Computed example of a mutant assay.
Amino acid sequence: MSRLYLIRHGKPAATWGEADEDPGLDDAGKAQADAARDYLMSLPEADRPKRVVSSPLRRCRETAMPTAQALGVDLEIDPAVGEIPTPAGLSAQDRPAWLRGVFQGKWKDVEGDLDYEAWRGEIVKALHARGGAAVFSHYVAINAVMSHLDGDERVLVFRPDHASISTLETGGDDLILVERGREASSGVL
C-alpha cells in the first residue's frame, strides 16, 4: 500500500458564475497552498508524496505548484481529477443552480448529457494509479471519491475546506480512506 493525498484547491479569486471561468487563487488561497506544501513536506520521508498531480484548472495548478517546487518534481496535469463537467448548453451563470441541485441528490440522478456515475468511477480509477502522489482536485470530485469509499450514493457526503488534505492508501485495486481532511464550517465555498 502507498499513501495518496487528496487535496482541495485553495480559495479562488472568484466563485462560480462570476466573469472569470478559470480563476486563480486569491491571497488567502496562496497562503493555503503554502500551508498544504508545508504540511506535506513535514511528513516523514516514507509518507511524503513523490509526485504532484493536478486538475487542469488554474486554482488547482496554483495550489499544487508550491508542493511540486518543494519536491523538485514536474506538475502532472490530469483531467481525470478535474471539476465535474457542466452539461452541454448550460451557461456559466446557470451552473451554480445546477450544482445546488446536484448536491441535493444521488449520483444516478444527476441531470446532464453525461453518465455522472461513470464519471465518479473514472476519478476513483484514476486514483488507483496515483499511489505516492499529492492530487489537487475539486469539491465535487473529492465528494465523488468519498461517496465511493463510504458506499454512499449521495453526491454530497463531505465538505472539504479549501486546501483540505485527505489521506488515502492505494495498492492494486484497493483505495482506502485513512483520514478525512478538514471540513468547511459552512456550505460550499
Rank of each mutant, 00 (worst) to 15 (best):
Ser2Tyr: 09
Ser2Arg: 15
Ile7Pro: 02
Lys11Ala: 13
Pro12Phe: 08
Ala13Tyr: 05
Ala13Cys: 10
Ala14Val: 08
Ala14Ile: 04
Ala14Cys: 10
Gly17Cys: 09
Gly17Thr: 07
Ala19Met: 06
Asp20Ala: 04
Asp20Glu: 13
Ala28Gln: 14
Gly29Thr: 02
Gly29Leu: 08
Gly29Glu: 06
Ala31Ile: 04
Ala31Asn: 03
Ala35Glu: 15
Ala35Ile: 07
Ala36Gly: 06
Met41Phe: 12
Ala46Asp: 11
Asp47Thr: 01
Asp47Ser: 12
Arg48Trp: 04
Arg51Cys: 02
Arg58Ser: 02
Arg59Lys: 12
Arg61Glu: 08
Glu62Asp: 14
Thr63Ile: 07
Ala64Leu: 05
Met65Asn: 02
Ala68Phe: 03
Ala68Val: 03
Gln69Trp: 09
Gly72Lys: 07
Asp74Ile: 01
Ile77Asn: 03
Ile77Phe: 09
Asp78Gln: 12
Asp78Arg: 12
Pro79Cys: 10
Ala80Asp: 15
Val81Pro: 02
Gly82His: 05
Ile84Trp: 04
Pro85Gly: 09
Pro85Asp: 08
Pro85Arg: 15
Thr86Ile: 15
Pro87Phe: 10
Ala88Gly: 12
Leu90Met: 15
Ala92Ser: 14
Gln93Thr: 11
Asp94Lys: 14
Pro96Trp: 06
Ala97Gln: 14
Trp98Asn: 08
Leu99Ser: 05
Arg100Cys: 01
Arg100Asp: 13
Gly101Ala: 06
Gln104Phe: 06
Gly105Ile: 07
Lys108Ala: 15
Glu111Leu: 12
Gly112Lys: 06
Gly112Asn: 06
Asp115Lys: 05
Tyr116Thr: 03
Tyr116Leu: 02
Glu122Ile: 00
Glu122Ser: 10
Ile123Ala: 11
Val124His: 06
Ala126Met: 03
Leu127Glu: 05
Ala134Lys: 03
Val135Cys: 05
Ser137Asn: 08
His138Asp: 11
Asn143Pro: 09
Asn143Cys: 13
Met146His: 10
His148Met: 06
Leu149Phe: 12
Leu149Ser: 07
Gly151Asn: 11
Glu153Gln: 14
Leu156Pro: 03
Val157Gln: 00
Val157Ile: 02
Arg159Lys: 14
Arg159Val: 11
Pro160Phe: 08
Asp161Asn: 15
Asp161Tyr: 00
Ala163Lys: 03
Ala163Val: 08
Ser164Ile: 02
Ser166Tyr: 05
Thr167Arg: 09
Leu168Ser: 07
Glu169Pro: 00
Glu169Thr: 12
Gly171Val: 08
Gly172His: 06
Asp174Tyr: 06
Asp174Arg: 14
Val178Cys: 07
Glu179Val: 00
Arg180Leu: 13
Gly181His: 07
Gly181Tyr: 07
Ala184Tyr: 05
Ser185His: 11
Val188Lys: 14
Val188Pro: 12
Leu189Ile: 13
